[in-house]
Design a protein around this nucleic acid. Structure first.
Lengths: 205, 205
DNA sequence: GCCCACATGTAATCAGTTACATGATTCT
DNA sequence: AGAATCATGTAACTGATTACATGTGGGC
């Protein structure tokens, strides 16, 4: 975020985190703490932030008049601050959304696969078998969640929860793809031979 | 990288970037410049680094004796340095590889979808239609590349290029998943109604 | 003469994590 | 009595990008 107080005009620009917080606030006003929780699911599988990063960013968003805050009595020594998205914040979000994404994806899981034959094949096969199992679990969980959301109309683009549904669908596709790939890789490494993609999970894991 | 000169023993630990460079060096000795190029494909779609990050990291790897360097005359004012992976470096890489990945994935593309109904639906549909088209192009390109690699035995885990092949396969799965999802999202936003996943690309884009 | 590829570095800044710090309320 | 949840912040550090800085050799 380059937005500072006094700089209320034209070229105000934000960081991806700032816009992520604005997106969370479209779901309704929240405290920094609540935003930290709200970020966990479902978007947390594709974007994360700790509270130590969120609190200063909220202060910057407030300085840019993209959010408003109401102070109240908090449980601890400091006041509890509830943030609300402003029309200016919503407009800034709308402008950012239609610009092409720029953050390059990073996957340590794929990076490790790139050096697959520099490690013990058994340990490596084990690692990717566990990753595949985890992705299958997530896939099951998310498919149930998505089915429930479909039942309540979240699959319509005018539904306020459509964004959540869209993220969940990408989670499903991502888990399916990663799971199948990790399983293929585990099979290759365990058998020491080329394997076909999409084979059923061999017994004896 | 916490590895410093003199600290050659037990608890030497590295950053993901350090291990990425070691992985690149398993393909053969290289200069920092060549590593910058080598990182572009195919692993560049899942892990990136600029030369300004690579050069200092190579110095740290050399201090940790994980790589060796040979100096020669360079084109510019400074000496050209060719780095080679040492047995200690290979061992360190092997230990890191079998540890579970920790870096959380980040996708600005999915983050934007999370706020899909806070922007102009037409512009948003356009954005995701372009993303889908791009993923289809990548899919075509990578499938041809993968077919070529299969023909030359890269799909066997003992082939030195197996890591490249594995990354390429994940690229394919990722492009397929992201492409189908982006197309679904574009269709939803354009029609303003719920769409089924995996539908054929509607005409008139 | 100009642009491109080769080649290596540093400085400033931004983004993100880890650790430190405080304190009320509710549940076990 | 101790742990978990709610709630907000800062400091130190690591990771990554952008910009600055230098210079050769080859092709057009």
């Amino acid at each position: 975020m380059r937005a500072r107080d006094g700089d209320d005009s034209a070229s105000v620009s934000g960081s991806a985190l700032g816009y992520a917080l604005l997106s969370l606030l479209t779901r309704g006003p929240a405290t920094g703490y609540q935003l930290t929780q709200r970020m966990k699911s479902p978007i947390g599988h594709f974007w994360t932030a700790k509270h130590s990063q969120i609190y200063p960013e909220l202060a910057r968003l407030a300085a840019a008049t993209w959010v408003e805050l109401a102070e109240g009595a908090g449980p601890g020594p400091r006041a509890k601050k509830t943030y609300t998205l402003t029309p200016a914040g919503l407009a800034a979000l709308g402008e950012w959304l239609v610009r092409p994404p720029v953050v390059a994806p990073r996957s340590e899981t794929v990076l490790k696969a790139y050096a697959a034959n520099s490690a013990d094949p058994v340990a490596m096969a084990d690692l990717y078998a566990r990753i595949a199992a985890r992705q299958r679990d997530l896939l099951d969980e998310w498919e149930q969640e998505a089915a429930m959301l479909r039942g309540t109309g979240h699959d319509r683009p005018d539904h306020p929860g459509f964004g959540n549904y869209a993220v969940l669908l990408m989670g499903i596709e991502s888990a399916r793809a990663t799971g199948a790939w990790a399983q293929w890789l585990a099979t290759c490494l365990r058998t020491g031979r080329a394997a076909a993609f999409g084979d059923p999970i061999p017994s004896g894991t």
